Amino acid sequence: MNDPRGAAVLEVTGWPTIYDITDDWLQADRTAAERARLQYHESVLLEGSARIVVCSHALERSKDRPGRTVLIPNAVDPVPYRSPSPRPTDLPNGATAVYAGTVHSDRFDVPLAVTTARELSNRGTLTLVGPNLLSHSDRSRLEDAGAVLLGSKPAKAVPGYLQHADVLVVPHLVNAFTDSLDPIKVYEYAATGRPVISTNVAGFRDAGDDRVTIADGRRFAEAVADAIPARWIFPERSDRPVPSWDDRAREMAEVLSAVARSPYSLQKGS
């Protein structure tokens, strides 16, 4: 299970279950009624699952159930990100500051992105690559500031946008919800070797990577503008080790095997 609503299946069947937590939705901005439903569903999964797999240290601390919680961080398939791709035809001309990922108000700091797009002005274009889940008004604010929203792209096309960016950006909110995450873009960005400007969010602030600059508020927008044009051209600095999904698959296979050997039913202690 990944969606907490899957708790209903566990309640009905009692089947051995793995609860895979990638986001702490209890920390997201939700209505009181929705949060109450989430709390109930999660309590069922936390107490009834044979194993609880989390992707971040913050989740490991907050969702720990002794003997059943396993930390398996995210990763990347490095080969596509390190194999040169042609410049995407819809990438804006000139210098670009690229964000790759779902543009969602739970994570994405719209006012900061607006400020950044304006700061770039004639020096470059803030370009957002990924599903757009913003309100119409937020999208209009970004476009009026000069940002370009390219929308969803096939997974195989994403590396080309990162490779041809002058700088990669992470204008994320800093709050309890984002602190629970292990952003996959940490690994995708690292695989390409491009310079990165990020707010002080989990994953990037802990990366220990000299290619990453942490900045907040007005300094974030200024740091993005200062990084254009980039000093580094792909594939420079893209040869550093990064965790692979092959490694994570082996770790998850071990969890599956453990659950298969020792089923754990909804009735605790059985």
Rank of each mutant, 00 (worst) to 15 (best):
M1L: 06
A8N: 01
T17C: 11
Y19E: 06
I21E: 01
I21L: 13
D23L: 07
A32V: 13
A33V: 12
E34C: 00
A36L: 04
Y40Q: 13
H41E: 15
L45Y: 12
E47M: 07
G48N: 12
A50N: 10
I52F: 03
V53W: 12
L59Q: 15
E60S: 11
R61A: 14
D64V: 00
P66G: 11
V70L: 01
V70K: 01
P73Q: 10
D77K: 13
P80I: 05
Y81D: 08
S83T: 15
P84W: 10
P84M: 12
P86A: 15
D90V: 09
L91R: 09
A97W: 01
A100E: 12
G101E: 09
F108D: 04
V110G: 05
L112F: 03
V114W: 01
T115E: 15
E119D: 00
L120D: 06
N122M: 04
G124R: 06
L126Q: 06
V129K: 07
P131Q: 15
P131T: 15
N132P: 03
N132C: 14
H136Q: 15
H136N: 13
S137L: 12
E143V: 14
L149W: 02
L149C: 11
K153H: 08
P154A: 09
Y161A: 08
L162S: 06
Q163D: 13
H164Q: 04
V169Q: 02
H172C: 03
H172E: 02
L173C: 01
F177G: 02
K185V: 08
V186Q: 11
V186W: 03
Y187A: 06
A190W: 06
G193R: 04
P195M: 12
V196W: 05
S198I: 09
T199H: 04
A202W: 08
G203I: 08
F204K: 08
R205M: 12
D206S: 14
A207K: 06
T213R: 14
A215I: 02
A215T: 05
R218H: 12
R219I: 03
F220D: 03
F220M: 02
A227F: 01
P229N: 02
P229D: 01
I233G: 00
F234M: 11
R240N: 05
R240T: 07
P241E: 09
W245S: 10
D246V: 09
D247K: 05
R248H: 08
A249L: 13
E251V: 05
V255P: 07
A260L: 15
R261I: 02
Q267H: 14
S270A: 11
S270T: 06
